[in-house]
Nucleic acid binder design. Sequence first.
DNA 1: CTAACGTGTAACCATAAGGTTACATTAAAG
DNA 2: CTTTAATGTAACCTTATGGTTACACGTTAG
Lengths: 127, 127
Amino acid sequence: MQDDRDMDAVFHALAHASRRRMLDILTARPGLAVGALASEFDVSRVAVMKHLAILEAAGLVVSEPDGRSRRLYFNVVPIQMIHERWTTQYSAYWAGQLTRIKYLAESATAPPSPQAKSRKKGERDGS
Amino acid sequence: MQDDRDMDAVFHALAHASRRRMLDILTARPGLAVGALASEFDVSRVAVMKHLAILEAAGLVVSEPDGRSRRLYFNVVPIQMIHERWTTQYSAYWAGQLTRIKYLAESATAPPSPQAKSRKKGERDGS
DNA sequence: CTAACGTGTAACCATAAGGTTACATTAAAG
DNA sequence: CTTTAATGTAACCTTATGGTTACACGTTAG
């Protein structure tokens, strides 16, 4: 972890609802087999295996063979590391200094700083 | 937030080192203009604007027009919400119940449970 | 008013994501 | 040993990502 590419991998892995659901399922039923996991989804088994490969590449899922089957486990470590990064990197702002920005986001009309002009016709805020 | 598509958007936005760096820059220099931000990167201004669009769609960046320029601001709220989700959803496991799985991940050789057979030639753990 | 500057838009390109079906491989059961 | 069941691989398709260059638009400065 701690490397940019690793972070890319973890965030990318988490950027799909099906993959997040896989983590939920594996959290609830550790040691689940590939086929059993796949049966929980509408898409094909191969599609599920591709998602699994992405989760494994990110370190979020680990596995071990068990006969002709394979047992899958959720691994929290990468999430913990990212969590640590976040809280340290943005801790100053979580403390409240960015309340100014927060209210800009919630009511996207008022200027975030005194010297800023009021928006006239742009109206382009984050979606 | 709280919606799956919103989470997709935030995670996807964070899944690129350039975009994370943009958030860092905007955290350090709130109100920065598009061109000034773009000058920090090797890629073209248009590429930077596309990244910005993704960050804005995720709600991680908000902006307001200022003359012929546009001021950009980092918005923590989506990250805070995802953070809350994480800590509540996985709090039980962060407490230590998954230590068994963690050690599987770190030394990817020992079986995570007694009834599991030892790996023979698979050697496929999460990369 | 005109020129220059900062942004936004359009069109295009290469590659990666996400999905499919069909086939190969390995291990357990009969 | 042959069949069946679980997983893995290959080839292919469609759409999204990330990037480019060229051009249009609105705003400030001469």
